[in-house]
């Protein structure tokens, strides 16, 4: 019988073999596939949750530790250092000139951080290159005056209880965007429990919708 006749009469020889393999009673291939599926699933799932955030963010320590709680206690409030200028712009992180209102190149305390500040920055007349946790990108216009003065909001609503911290946590920078992790939030899914957990555009829009009845227009912030 020719090969062609064989195929015509019985179909493909390979096909007959494959049919035997698909017999559920003899399905070893499927079992291995399930194992592979589970292994790959677990590796990728765990990597996505545990390894991915570590790879996505780089960590930087601040130049030296800063005790917010102590400074609030000494100065009385946030506005002594983080103030609105006369023209309504926000001073942000204080410049050295503000620090020198109280400090000199002689350490005021006995901590190692105070010594670093005095010797490396005050004495050398250098600005402290702080990492700014809440820094918004350049394409965003944000007026502190409108929120603090006009809307009467307090610092905690957006910045949390940083004023009560005694140490500076590491600054985490998104390797892709260059943004601080505080913008997306600590939770890698972006889930937040408190108003200060995230500082994304959607968070602005939600609050604006609640407070003003409208989420706002693009050009209000993206000028």
């Amino acid at each position: 019988m020719s090969e062609l006749e064989n195929k015509t009469e019985h179909g493909s020889v390979d096909g007959a073999t494959e049919g035997a393999a698909e017999d559920p009673k003899n399905d070893t291939g499927l079992g291995l596939g399930v194992i592979f599926f589970i292994v790959a699933f677990l590796i990728c799932f765990l990597s996505g949750w545990l390894l991915f955030p570590k790879l996505l963010y780089s960590k930087h320590e601040q130049p030296f530790n800063f005790d917010h709680a102590l400074h609030v206690q000494e100065t009385g409030d946030c506005e002594s250092c983080h103030f609105l200028r006369d023209d309504g712009t926000f001073s942000g992180i204080p410049k050295m000139a503000s620090c020198l209102d109280c400090h000199t190149d002689e350490p005021m305390g006995e901590t190692r951080d105070e010594a670093i500040f005095a010797s490396e920055y005050v004495a050398k007349e250098r600005e402290v290159p702080w990492y700014v946790y809440a820094k918004q990108p350049d394409c965003v216009f944000f007026s502190h005056a409108a929120h603090i003065e006009a809307a009467g909001m307090d610092c905690v609503t957006c910045h949390g209880h940083i004023g009560e911290s005694t140490t500076s946590r590491p600054y985490e920078e998104n390797r892709l965007t260059g943004y601080s992790r505080d913008i997306w939030g600590k939770n890698i899914w972006g889930i937040k429990k408190n108003s200060w957990d995230r500082m994304k555009m959607d968070d602005c829009a939600v609050c604006h919708k609640e407070e003003t009845g409208h989420q706002g227009y693009c050009f209000q912030c993206h000028k």
Partner: peptide, 18 residues
Amino acid sequence: RSFLGLGLGAVAGIAISP
């Protein structure tokens, strides 16, 4: 089928990760 399982597992794992 094993490789199919591997690929589907990887996709499913990533899909329900962030």
